[in-house]
């Protein structure tokens, strides 16, 4: 991975020398990796490897101690969370966080990228463009039938999809998903993999996942993290046969 390439801007996301320390403990330590446009990248690693922290750093939830995160040529480390969202990064959390009191339709509508300022939210009108966009996304995430149900009534898997849908409607260039299939049934997992394949037709996706079967299903490339650092990177076969990886992770 040459730095010359990152400057030329071929990468959608270039993370370089990223470090964050919590009272001296380096949760992410001098981490670098690069994402191509339309790539599905999965980050795996043992517990406490710093996977979720990486997502936190990219989306601005946690501020980096040093290092840079360049997204489509834009430095993200200086931006606030909502600005990062506006520049095209969407983040799904590990536990589904949807608005339980609102209906599925309203959940998606709230996420629709319009009327995000105070004044805008006051003036926001539900026009046909909004309705079409919501119905469109609802179809993608298999929730057309429950559009008018409150989100609290959805199953765990449906809530996960809804949250993915709430990201999709923002039309982000990069989607970050933290354990999207955790707690899902086998059938739901299959559908989620299908959903991700549809999504990657026009998005770049960064996934943190434990389920190796699922990782094998979806990943273009895999980054293995260990103690805040990159241990190995490449195709799933490549990392699976990497002795370092076998020692710290798969060997257990």
């Amino acid at each position: 991975m040459s730095t010359a390439k990152s400057i030329s801007g071929d990468f959608l996301l270039a993370v370089e020398g990223l470090t964050v320390s919590f009272d001296g403990f380096k949760a992410v330590d001098d981490l670098s990796f690069y994402l191509d446009p339309r790539e599905i990248r999965v980050i795996i690693g043992p517990n406490g490897a710093g996977k979720t922290t990486v997502l936190d750093l990219i989306c601005g939830k946690t501020k980096a101690t040093t290092g840079s995160i360049k997204f489509a040529g834009k430095e993200l480390t200086k931006l606030k969370e909502h600005q990062i969202v506006h520049s095209g990064v969407g983040r799904k959390f590990q536990t589904p966080s949807v608005f339980e009191d609102l209906t599925v339709f309203e959940n998606l509508e709230v996420s629709y990228p319009q009327g995000h300022s105070v004044i805008g939210a006051l003036a926001f009108k539900r026009d046909t463009a909004v309705i079409e966009a919501v119905e469109d996304v609802a179809k993608t995430i298999f929730l057309t039938d429950v559009l008018n149900e409150p989100a609290a009534m959805l199953s765990h898997g449906q809530k996960q999809w809804l949250e993915i849908g709430m990201l999709l409607i923002q039309k982000p260039a990069l989607l970050m998903l933290d354990e999207p299939v955790a707690g899902m049934s086998v059938a739901e997992r299959k559908k989620t993999a299908e959903l991700l394949r549809v999504i990657t037709k026009d998005h770049t996706v960064l996934v943190v996942e434990h389920d190796m079967q699922f990782v094998g299903d979806i990943a273009d490339r895999v980054t293995v993290m260990h103690q805040g650092k990159v241990l190995s990177e490449g195709s799933i076969e490549h990392v699976k046969s990497d002795p370092k990886v076998i020692e710290v992770y798969l060997g257990h």
Binding site: K61, E81, H82, S97, E100, S111, H116
Partner: peptide
């Protein structure tokens, strides 16, 4: 209810 989700839906 979900301050984090609102923030990461792009709201200040």
């Amino acid at each position: 209810a979900q301050e984090m989700r609102v923030r990461f839906s792009g709201y200040d």
